Simulated assay, not measured.
Amino acid sequence: MKLSVLIPVYNERDTVELLLKRVEAAPYEKEIILVDDASTDGTREILTRLARDHRDQVRLILHPDNRGKGAAIRTAIEHVTGDIVIIQDADLEYDPQDYPKLLEPILDGHADVVFGNRFHGGPHRVLYFWHSVGNRLLTTLCNIVTNLNLSDMEVGYKVFRSEILQRLRLKSNRFGIEPELTVKVAKLECRIYEVPIAYHGRTYAEGKKIGWKDGIAALYYILRFRLFD
């Protein structure tokens, strides 16, 4: 089993090197595909050095302009050669030590897709009340239109059997990638599991990027990809 770790990166100079060390420590044969989405804070230079020093495991793709998380993930998918694919944010909100739990349902032959669950069973940082309300509303709406019973549709940790992910024709450029992935694996009637994960969320002062406008956009994407795509 070969694991492909897709890491979209934008302006994460303070976390990306430590994140890469933690991903490399995961006890699997793996390839690490980093996509820098036109960072401007020195991240790109750090990634260039890391890719040079870890050529056996790391592939770096550089976007010439900022296109968003979804676009970075779509770029990374084009280079996947592994059997299982995990999407890993570069901000240390998600812990690579959770890989064994996330991979277990697929390795056991029970699942095609695994979602992390930030709020049931794993330690998580207590942060914004209205973010949690928005997340529940978006997850509920997504469940209504897909007939799923997910607990955390917007979670960044999503794991796929490679052949499932490569069947999807993804279009989102920004954070709409989360509902798009969810709706499209539901349409394929994939076997979806959830597992509890640790969540070390950040404040906006610490670099959190997703905002209320992305929440409004997610409503549109849920309906668009369920009804019109």
Rank of each mutant, 00 (worst) to 15 (best):
M1E: 00
L3M: 07
Y10D: 05
Y10R: 14
N11L: 08
R13G: 04
K21H: 05
E24V: 02
A25Q: 09
A26G: 08
Y28A: 15
K30I: 14
K30D: 14
E31S: 15
I32A: 04
V35M: 14
D36M: 07
A38V: 07
S39V: 02
S39D: 05
S39P: 04
S39A: 05
T40S: 02
T40H: 02
D41H: 08
G42Y: 01
G42W: 00
I46N: 09
T48H: 05
H54A: 02
H54Y: 04
V58K: 03
R59Y: 12
I61V: 09
L62A: 15
L62M: 09
L62W: 07
L62Y: 12
P64K: 11
P64M: 14
A71K: 01
R74V: 02
T75G: 11
A76V: 02
A76L: 04
I77N: 08
H79W: 12
T81R: 07
T81S: 06
T81A: 03
D83A: 03
I84P: 03
I84G: 14
A90F: 08
D91M: 14
D91H: 09
Y94H: 01
D95T: 02
P96G: 00
P100V: 11
L103N: 08
P105W: 08
I106A: 05
L107Y: 10
L107E: 15
D108S: 07
A111C: 10
A111R: 11
A111I: 04
V113G: 05
G116F: 05
R118A: 04
F119R: 04
G121T: 03
H124T: 03
H124D: 06
R125A: 11
V126H: 06
Y128V: 12
F129G: 03
F129H: 08
W130C: 06
W130A: 07
S132Q: 14
V133I: 15
T140R: 14
L141R: 07
C142S: 15
T146C: 10
L148N: 10
L148W: 05
D152E: 08
G156H: 10
Y157N: 13
V159G: 00
R161A: 07
S162H: 04
L165A: 04
L165M: 06
R167H: 02
L170W: 00
L170V: 02
S172D: 15
R174H: 08
R174F: 08
F175L: 10
I177Y: 00
E178I: 05
E178L: 09
E180C: 13
E180P: 15
L181G: 06
L181V: 15
T182G: 12
V183P: 13
K184F: 05
K184C: 05
V185D: 08
A186S: 11
C190M: 06
C190P: 06
Y193V: 00
E194D: 10
E194I: 12
A198E: 01
A198R: 01
Y199Q: 03
T203M: 10
Y204T: 00
Y204Q: 03
A205R: 13
G211Q: 15
W212D: 01
K213F: 04
D214P: 06
D214M: 15
D214Q: 11
A217F: 06
A218P: 14
A218V: 12
A218R: 14
L219D: 07
Y220W: 14
I222P: 09
I222G: 12
L223R: 13
L223H: 12
R226P: 13
L227T: 03
D229N: 10
